[in-house]
């Protein structure tokens, strides 16, 4: 794309609604996103309703610091996060909106980079950005760039995925290594000198989900294990479905560098955030098909079956257990605020 940046930093005037605002929209956003709906220049992007009559919609705000990190930037996150959230419903993700809150003085070339990444990621995911908004706040009023995206997709007839669908006997899959994003962000932000660079895994997974759904049509549910990691996702599933879940620790794919970092930092990798991973629960007889589909899909080469759904014993509360390599189990809880160590 062209770098016809008139201004070198974001100015308050870029949010004024006047000439400057038009300039930043034209030069920065339209140039990159350029969907027909957007180029029509209307206040609303108008799109066609799907034949199935059902849409899925999700929104998310992105305030990550730093905005640039190994493996991506806030723009990639903003597209992937919402695309993945919409896609977990089984919908074909079609349209995105994006709202920017910019801090006065933010370097224009960085904004360009972010926007360019968003365009590329949207292209990769096959979604159109059809409406947007820009606000500029005074210095100190925000940390550089905040982005909100909302996404809409059409839900094919017959698809009804829900975290409440898990049944005893079902199998739990994850689409790749865990913990990459959370550790990458933390290392970058805090300047932790790990010997190997850990990259964020941010990726759009709507195609992977579609592939899994066609290979394993009775898939119960998907969820992207973002904040709170796998621990939160599985506990949410267990509670919604009233079941117990068991994860084989050794089966969970984790990069050695991430594992080592977690040990050093005292984090449980199963509680660390991911941005390009999908958890799926499928009936046992479709597990192999789902796994093959995941592995064949882009971003799914390290997919693995990591556990199973178990019946809830009478009186027990829904819970997730991790079976360690030597057969003992530990209870995998959701993260409770800032962690206080429990061991004596």
């Amino acid at each position: 794309m062209s770098h016809s940046v008139t201004d070198s930093t974001v100015l308050l005037g870029h949010g004024s609604g006047g000439q400057m605002m038009k300039r930043i929209i034209d030069e920065v956003f339209l140039d990159a996103f350029g969907s027909p709906e957007l180029l029509e220049g209307n206040d609303a992007g108008v799109a066609t309703l799907p034949a199935s009559g059902r849409i899925a919609m999700s929104t998310d705000s992105f305030v990550v610091s730093p905005q640039f990190f190994p493996g991506g930037n806030i723009g990639r996150l903003a597209v992937c996060g919402t695309v993945n959230d919409v896609a977990t419903s089984g919908a074909n993700v079609r349209y995105l909106s994006c709202g920017f809150i910019l801090e006065e003085g933010y370097p224009m070339d960085k904004l360009h980079q972010i926007v360019q990444t968003m365009a590329e990621t949207a292209h990769e995911a096959g979604v159109s950005i059809i409406t947007g908004d820009t606000k500029v706040v005074e210095r100190g009023g925000a940390d550089g760039v905040y982005i909100n995206t909302a996404g809409v997709g059409e839900v094919p007839a017959g698809v009804a995925l829900s975290g409440a669908n898990c049944r005893p006997g079902d199998v739990i899959l994850v689409s790749g290594t865990l913990g990459d994003h959370g550790i990458a962000i933390m290392s970058q932000r805090e300047g932790l000198a790990f010997s190997s660079t850990i990259e964020s895994d941010a990726a759009p997974l709507n195609h992977l989900i579609a592939d899994v759904l066609s290979a394993a049509p009775d898939t119960r549910c998907f969820r992207d294990p973002t904040r709170g990691g796998l621990a939160s996702t599985l506990n949410e599933f267990a509670q919604a479905s009233g079941v117990a879940m068991e994860v084989d620790e050794d089966a969970v794919p984790v990069r050695p560098g991430v594992q080592a970092a977690c040990e050093m930092l005292g984090y449980d990798v199963l509680q660390v955030a991911n941005e390009g991973k999908m958890v799926a629960v499928v009936p046992a007889e479709q597990a192999d098909a789902a796994l093959s589909a995941m592995r064949a899909a882009r971003y799914g080469e390290n997919a693995a079956i990591i556990g199973r759904v178990l019946p809830l014993e009478s009186g027990a509360r829904p819970a997730v257990r991790v079976r360690t390599g030597w057969g003992s189990t530990r209870i995998l809880d959701m993260l409770v605020g800032e962690q206080l160590p429990r061991i004596c």
Binding site: L192, A193, F194, M264, Q339
Partner: peptide, 18 residues
């Protein structure tokens, strides 16, 4: 070296260091 450096950073920045 890595353990010393990471540990020092964790202490300094209060990362998971109750």
């Amino acid at each position: 070296e890595q353990t010393r450096s990471v540990t020092a950073t964790m202490i300094e920045r209060g990362i998971n260091s109750p």
